[in-house]
Simulated scan of single mutants.
Amino acid sequence: MTRPSASSSPSSGSSSEALELGGSVWLRAGHETLGGAARIALLEAIGATGSITGAAKAVEMSYKAAWDAIDTMNNLAGEPLVTRAAGGKGGGGTKLTPRAIRLIETFRAVEHEHRKFIERASAAIEGFAGDWDLIGRIGMKMSARNQLSGTITSIKYGAVNDEISLGLPGGQTIVAVVTHESTESLGLAEGGAAFALIKASSVLILVDDAGGAPIKISARNQLRGTVSKVTRGAVNSEVSLELGGGTVVTAIITNESVDTLALAAGGEAVAAFKASSVILGVNG
């Protein structure tokens, strides 16, 4: 599979940056991703060093993350791509199987052709980079009702979990808690683009009390907005909040809750959900 994406480079004679077309290549096994550039680079490093420790260091990946990636690739390939040799007179080591070597060769060949395609498309179609990136985002198939795109504004690293803040177009921020391995494998970094997935059933809707006192709740994410739509069903209702900047968050709550909170289009409300309910993803 291949997907072009937008990147930027300094324009000639100007301090501003002009868009150019970039892209990425990845391999799939069924509906699961077998490997992209990072995992192929890991396989190549294993072939060069004969060591998981050396390969992980070469691609700036933790030892555990490297083995997790290898296990995933072995499982998805349906056969070993990496084998560990027992120690002895000649010492032990880690080796690539012939299947892994062919996979690397195939990936690099496809990547070469992909770059040629990107160059032709970029030259032929004005504005192709931005359009293709948007096509990739809107074409994602996810069960989560809320799919919000933003920019990573901060990362607080922990021993096991990291706290990621994602700035939304309207100025509000979503906080997610993910494992440190997920931060590494997704390549999350401040200033990078990412998207947040939140199930509508995980979102609570709150309103200020009659005195206008601020809402107190343990949920880390509290996004204030205007009710744009209330769609009633037999038991539950779908409530959508406009947050600004074109961002909308939707919740599924009971009809009784809609009536108790007096929710109606145009009213102010808050969408609340736990940081642990947020799944982060990146394109490519």
Rank of each mutant, 00 (worst) to 15 (best):
T183G: 00
G13S: 08
A200W: 06
T250V: 04
S9D: 13
A144L: 02
T183W: 02
D208S: 09
D259T: 15
E126S: 14
V278P: 00
R84C: 12
A45K: 00
T33D: 04
A159R: 14
T83C: 08
A58L: 12
T53A: 14
N161L: 11
W26Y: 12
Y157Q: 15
S276E: 01
P4Y: 11
S14A: 11
L241C: 06
T2N: 08
L19N: 10
H180C: 03
N161H: 11
R137S: 07
A262K: 13
E20C: 09
L188V: 08
V249I: 09
I205K: 07
I138T: 08
S149F: 14
A100H: 05
N146L: 06
I164N: 06
I104T: 03
A29Q: 11
A123R: 07
E256W: 01
G35V: 03
E111C: 07
S5Q: 12
P214Y: 15
A58G: 02
D131K: 14
S143A: 05
A37C: 06
R28E: 14
S276H: 00
R224I: 08
G281F: 00
R3M: 12
L188C: 04
E242W: 06
S16E: 13
T72N: 12
D133I: 09
K156P: 01
V282E: 01
K199R: 07
I135N: 09
T106S: 11
